[in-house]
Design a protein around this nucleic acid. Sequence first.
DNA 1: CGCGGAGTTGATGATCTTCAAACATGGTGG
DNA 2: CCACCATGTTTGAAGATCATCAACTCCGCG
Lengths: 222, 222
Amino acid sequence: MLVRINRTNRRLVDGHLAALGAERVFCSEFNYRGGAEIFGEGEGAEFVYQIISGVVRTHKLLPDGRRQIKAFHLAGDMFGLENGTTHRFTAEAIVGTEVRIAGRRSLLEVTTHRGTEAANLIALINQNLQHAESHMLLLGRKTALERVAAFLLEMDERLAHPDVMILPMTRRDIADYLGLTIETISRALSTLRGEQILRFIGQTQREVVLLDRGRLATFDAQ
Amino acid sequence: MLVRINRTNRRLVDGHLAALGAERVFCSEFNYRGGAEIFGEGEGAEFVYQIISGVVRTHKLLPDGRRQIKAFHLAGDMFGLENGTTHRFTAEAIVGTEVRIAGRRSLLEVTTHRGTEAANLIALINQNLQHAESHMLLLGRKTALERVAAFLLEMDERLAHPDVMILPMTRRDIADYLGLTIETISRALSTLRGEQILRFIGQTQREVVLLDRGRLATFDAQ
DNA sequence: CGCGGAGTTGATGATCTTCAAACATGGTGG
DNA sequence: CCACCATGTTTGAAGATCATCAACTCCGCG
């Protein structure tokens, strides 16, 4: 998986990318060999890409090597557009691939200085996208215990780390969120309780105290 | 899960929704009881919602009742914003919930008549979101055979139903896309071949002929 | 009090993974 | 030219994880 970039030419092109960023977006073209990395997770998101020909895969990795591919991108598809300044995925060419590249900043700024409404809207949809993407990794590659740990950490985070976390949803809701069954949820919670990572308040089993958030995080992958 | 909507009042409010659609978006407020359906999958997407207080879940259902919850929405969260005219999810209040509502058309048209670039950008991100959402259902609730059938149908669709479908990715790529192992992919393909639904051309096992797309679709759920 | 909904726990079972072996292909170098 | 090796794929056997089935508790409520 060596990175081998063959720059071919730089010229203004039209197409979907141009339609997005309008005429002032400068587009150039690149070629990647099969197996080449186009950008890596965590790298700065300088460019947005559109495939002229070839196939690209975008994926996330867990530290132990488990991989979740988010999508395969074919000719005409765009990828690499992020809300923030870093890529949330790694993109690799599967076969020899030609891409068209536009600067991200010019593209997003087009909308920004046209008014904050559009920018806010894009940020909002992008948040949803980001959440869906990380949930795909959870559903595709995490174990039951990892999923439950991730769920508890997500809720704790979103509820601003309360002393007592009151879960508004049933075990069935949690199960259907995490792609498991209610019994598996219950067993995972019992395991975490046995590990002294959490305890329940009252009889309802919906009020949770996280006793050790750090150790809980080690139960989640990454 | 009866639908019990208690309309409380209608008045102009400020907040994130207003920030999105600017001042001219008319916002009203509604109350839902726990268990109430706010909108259903497939219904027209007339409104966008922001939670004032309470909790909402959004989910997709398979015909046999398997459910995948996409997200839990808490106070401050927005949901129900779709690219097309219909909702891709069902939204239900988990507990008593107050929401702020804005008309979708006014909100999206704000960006549209400000320039097509922003609208194109939003459409693009929304496509990614839509794909991620349906993939979450696949990863959370579909069996191995259903996933492979769905994958073949997706590729067939995106390659415009070719006579011979040339898969550019390895079995490992397919496995990591579908949240399975290469052996399971291989076994599922062999099963489908045994069912006379597909056959391989040549020795490479990457060139597939779909012999019965209709029957293949029955192997996928929904 | 009885009933239903929600949750836990145990026993069993199915699906999918892991481990292993075999085979084909394609490239490399003697 | 062919041995050789890495990569990719299929298939079988064994094993682990999670699902299913079932029993039980707890609670709220008419």
